[in-house]
Structures are given as structure tokens and as C-alpha cells.
């Protein structure tokens, strides 16, 4: 048969939250329609997007591997362009299916699989990867004045400074 391809699909989270398996089969059925043999398909990750795509700030990635004759790819692209559930997709040639992918895919297809809950913290977002914990920190105006409630605690510190200065002078 044809070549092996790796396809990554960014799916609309609204569709994914409603029913993951249906969202997945929407993609795999389109692939099969164009004569692809789907080798593996699994949920890769849900992430915050680096920029908004079609008004969405989050999305779920579906990673697939499939065999398809070269002519089928362009026709398949047209379908994904029209599909509103697929925000973005990327199809690249793969020499073979990477080790472990088939197992992960089978694990997901097994009966007991439940979709992991949406992540509460953005452990994998781009900002998080680049800035680490700094990404979490709310942006604050640097304030020179301490909050008023802390005045009592501050008073001794302020009092010490002039004394120290006076000690150095004398």
C-alpha cells in the first residue's frame, strides 16, 4: 500500500467535551473514507493554545498514524478544511509508526478507557515551558508602599535605619 503518514489534528474542545470517541471517529472515518488504513489514533494532549485559533484558546490534539496512497492526501485535506470540528491539522510523512504508539492507541480503544479530566493547571502550555513557574504569577504593579495593615510590623524596621545611619556618622 501507500506511504505511512503521521496526522495531528487539533479538535474543538466543545466537541471533545461532548464525546471524545465521537470526535475521534469523526476524524478516523474521514481518513477511512479516502482509503486510509488507520494504524493508530490516540489522544495526545489537551493544551492551551499559543494563540487563538478560530476564537478558541484551548484545544485537544489527536495523534494518528495511517497508511494512504499519495493521491488520497490532497482529497483528504479538502475534507478537513471544511470540517468545523478540526481547527488545525498537520499531515507529515513518517517512515514508520514510532515504537509504543500502537500500544498507547490500543490502550485507549480498550473498554476501560476513560478520558482524563481537563487539566486544571497549564503544565504543558508554551508559556509554562518557557517561563516555568513565572507564568503562574499574576502581573502586579510594583508598589513601594507597604499595605496599611502591615504598618505595625514595618515600624521597627524603619526606626532602625536612621539609628544605623547615625551610628555610622558618629
Amino acid at each position: 500500500m501507500g506511504n505511512t503518514y503521521e496526522g495531528m489534528f487539533l479538535l474543538d474542545n466543545q466537541v471533545v467535551r461532548a464525546d471524545w470517541n465521537r470526535a475521534k471517529s469523526a476524524v478516523t472515518e474521514t481518513l477511512q473514507k479516502h482509503g486510509a488504513k488507520v494504524l493508530a489514533a490516540r489522544r495526545w494532549d489537551e493544551r492551551k493554545l499559543a494563540y487563538t485559533i478560530k476564537g478558541k484558546t484551548r484545544g485537544t490534539y489527536l495523534l494518528t498514524y495511517f497508511e494512504l496512497g499519495g493521491n488520497g492526501v490532497n482529497e483528504m485535506r479538502r475534507d478537513f478544511e471544511l470540517d468545523e470540528r478540526v481547527l488545525r491539522y498537520l499531515v507529515v510523512r513518517a517512515d514508520q509508526v514510532p515504537a509504543g504508539e500502537l500500544e498507547k492507541s490500543a490502550e485507549e480503544s480498550a473498554a476501560g478507557f476513560s478520558v482524563p479530566p481537563p487539566p486544571t493547571e497549564e503544565s504543558q502550555s508554551y508559556e509554562r515551558l518557557v517561563f516555568g513557574d513565572l507564568a503562574d504569577r499574576p502581573i502586579q504593579e510594583p508598589s513601594r508602599h507597604q499595605p496599611e495593615s502591615d504598618e505595625g510590623a514595618d515600624a521597627p524596621v524603619e526606626a532602625e535605619v536612621p539609628q544605623a545611619a547615625a551610628a555610622e556618622e558618629s
Binding site: R47, A50, Y51, L90
Partner: peptide
Amino acid sequence: KRARHLGLMPF
């Protein structure tokens, strides 16, 4: 460039 296309990295 591929990562950017998929929204994994910013432009």
C-alpha cells in the same frame, strides 16, 4: 514551523 501551525508555539 510545524509546531507554530498547530498552535503549540507562538509566531
